[in-house]
Amino acid sequence: MIESLASLLNIPVYALNAGLSAIILGIVSGVLGSFIVLRRMSLMGDALSHAVLPGVALSYILGINMIIGASLFGLLAAILIQFITNRSTIKSDTSIGIILSSFFALGIVLITFAQSGLDLTHILFGNILAVPKSELLQSFIIMLVVIAVVSLFYKELLISSFDPVVSKAYGLKTNFYHYLLMMLLSVVTVSSLSQVGIVLVIAMLVIPAATSYLWTNKLLHMIVLASFYGAFSGVAGVVVSFNYNLPTSGTIVLVGVTGFGISFIVSPKNNFFRKGLRTR
């Protein structure tokens, strides 16, 4: 199917694969990223995407699907971060820093231990020119699962993000939704490995969602716009990087952040110019 579509559009198959996977990643990270941004978990998202590295390495060594290892380590990291914060007076940003770096370090050691086969550079920075068809399919399925889970739990995710205090007051298990999101985040990190890599996953999660936030007053609108913008910056990044021979992951992120910069200045919600005048 992809081959015939590629010949129809008169572009090489690998380029079409790259474009499609950028669209898939854009959509899924827009959906998930909206919640990450609204729950003030950007740093947490960054930590989790780094923390899946040992899971990826172990999966390779054991010959199992990367999603299994990655979600296990992602969830473990989320639990440990919470544990350190709850059981000491250490603040959460510090415990995030500790877990992020030590899991990442463990991952690097494990990958070296595994030798060959796994290319650390590709995992860290992505390799969009070599997206195999199986991986494309996997990303597509992950996208469908994320959208399904978010729509099923939409009202619970909304209220626990908007007003966690009242949610707890009426008996909602807010912790469950926290870990559900962490779990989805770990899985999405895996699906983004080939495109932007572990280091820049957080940009895909945060930048489209934050840009969309500046234009919307409803959660659903924010999610839809973030997905569109994520897909757009993905495709635009791929096109620009192919034409000018630039690294794809970096280009995708830079395209995305350009839109954020423009929105920051012109969005009526942010009201940049009037705020500027008022402070003077």
Binding site: D163, V166, A169, Y170, N217, K218, L219
Partner: peptide, 17 residues
């Protein structure tokens, strides 16, 4: 039980009407 919290407990910048 309906609970009305203090205003400061709610995220007023949330995209919600």
């Amino acid at each position: 039980i309906a609970y009305v919290p203090q205003k400061s407990d709610v995220d007023l910048t949330f995209p919600i009407t």
